[in-house]
């Protein structure tokens, strides 16, 4: 049984978590092209090696980031998303000019 160290709940069984994919920079959905949005949603680097991914502890709905090596199936580091995302993501409204 594999143990994942949740930054909020401590070491827990990995079956309590879901993996939600690569950490990417989200384009502004109201300002980007269809191709850019499709790339963000559907296309992945899918790299072999050390990757950074969003994970969620399902029972507590806590989202955080995991750095792991997907060649050796080793978890290297888990940390709160605030380490990377230091400010709130703002969205422009479709009828507004981008500031």
């Amino acid at each position: 049984m594999k143990i994942l160290n949740c930054p909020l709940n401590g070491p827990r069984n990995i079956s309590e978590f879901i993996c939600a994919g690569e950490v990417e920079v989200e384009p502004d959905p109201n300002r980007c092209s269809n191709a850019e949005w499709a790339e963000y949603i559907f296309l992945h680097d899918n790299d072999a090696g050390v990757v950074q991914e969003w994970w969620c502890h399902v029972p507590t709905a806590y989202w955080f980031i995991v750095e792991r090596n997907n060649l050796t199936d080793e978890i290297l580091r888990t940390f709160p998303s605030t380490e990377i995302f230091t400010k709130r993501q703002e969205y422009s409204r479709p009828d507004q000019e981008a500031s």
């Binding site: 994919g21 790339e39 296309l43 992945h44 680097d45 899918n46 790299d47 072999a48």
Partner: peptide, 18 residues
């Protein structure tokens, strides 16, 4: 099994998770 890695050599991304 290595589609994304080969496509990356050709210079594009794929909608694949392995």
């Amino acid at each position: 099994g290595r589609s994304s890695l080969v496509a990356k050599m050709a210079g594009f991304k794929l909608p694949i998770k392995t």
